[in-house]
């Protein structure tokens, strides 16, 4: 069952590199939230009820419902729908990079293979991290950068499950910070960035430099 969910998670990451519309990004983030909930329930059943409840609260309420809802709100408010207006080459590059990231993650996982780390989780978490970074680097819109950050956060969460099963404090701390930072960033995006700087190209965020 866990394997199925992990494969589904990888598919969402691959799909992430092919989509262009912001609504699709939001859907992917929501789906990832649900998948992480399933994985957490299956993987962390040894935790006590309070800790498990905390994890469920984060994955279900926060990752699967609240964050996608805020993202949809941003889309409605800003009326921006697509990643880029003229990006067929960037789209192709991003897909190629995503495939390369998948290969790199698989190869790294093979070499890192060790009984102490759940290798499947490690590989997928690494792929999620690279996918998030690719999104941030390859796409020019601020909205996509936020999605990239959320993908990285999901990867970190997955990775903490690969290692931190015996250390619930780590997972809980990561979750707490995850919630705080994501809400702050999204809140700022929603209320401030769009008012003063258009939530359009990140080119509008290049005034503070030397």
């Amino acid at each position: 069952m866990v394997l199925t969910l992990i494969i589904l998670y990888v598919i969402t990451l691959i799909y992430l590199s092919t989509v262009e519309r912001f609504r699709n990004y939001t859907s992917i983030i929501a789906v990832q939230g649900w998948i992480l909930l399933g994985i957490a329930l299956l993987q962390l059943h040894t935790l006590n009820w309070v800790e498990l409840g905390f994890v469920i609260l984060e994955t279900l309420i926060f990752k699967a419902i609240v964050v996608p809802a805020i993202l949809m709100n941003v889309i409605k408010k800003t009326n921006i729908n697509r990643v880029s207006t003229s990006s067929s080459s960037s789209q192709f590059n991003s897909q190629m990079l995503s495939i390369a990231a998948l290969v790199v993650s698989a190869v790294t996982t093979y070499y890192v293979a060790d009984s102490r780390v759940h290798m499947l989780f490690f590989g997928v978490a690494l792929y999620a991290l690279l996918s998030g970074l690719i999104l941030i680097v390859m796409r020019s819109r601020i909205f996509t950068h936020v999605v990239g950050f959320l993908v990285i956060e999901n990867g970190v969460f997955l990775f903490s499950m690969a290692i931190g099963v015996e250390m619930p404090i780590l997972i809980n701390m990561a979750i707490m910070l995850d919630i705080l930072i994501s809400i702050l960033m999204l809140g700022m995006f929603l209320t401030k960035v769009d008012d003063k700087i258009h939530a359009d190209d990140s080119d509008s965020l290049t005034h503070v430099k030397d």
Binding site: F149, L184, M188, L205, H207
Partner: peptide, 19 residues
């Protein structure tokens, strides 16, 4: 505007770095 830009970048890069 410049401080908003700097704040946004600070939050974004620091959060990614800390992750």
């Amino acid at each position: 505007k410049p401080t908003l830009e700097a704040t946004w970048k600070y939050l974004f890069v620091c959060s990614t770095g800390i992750a």
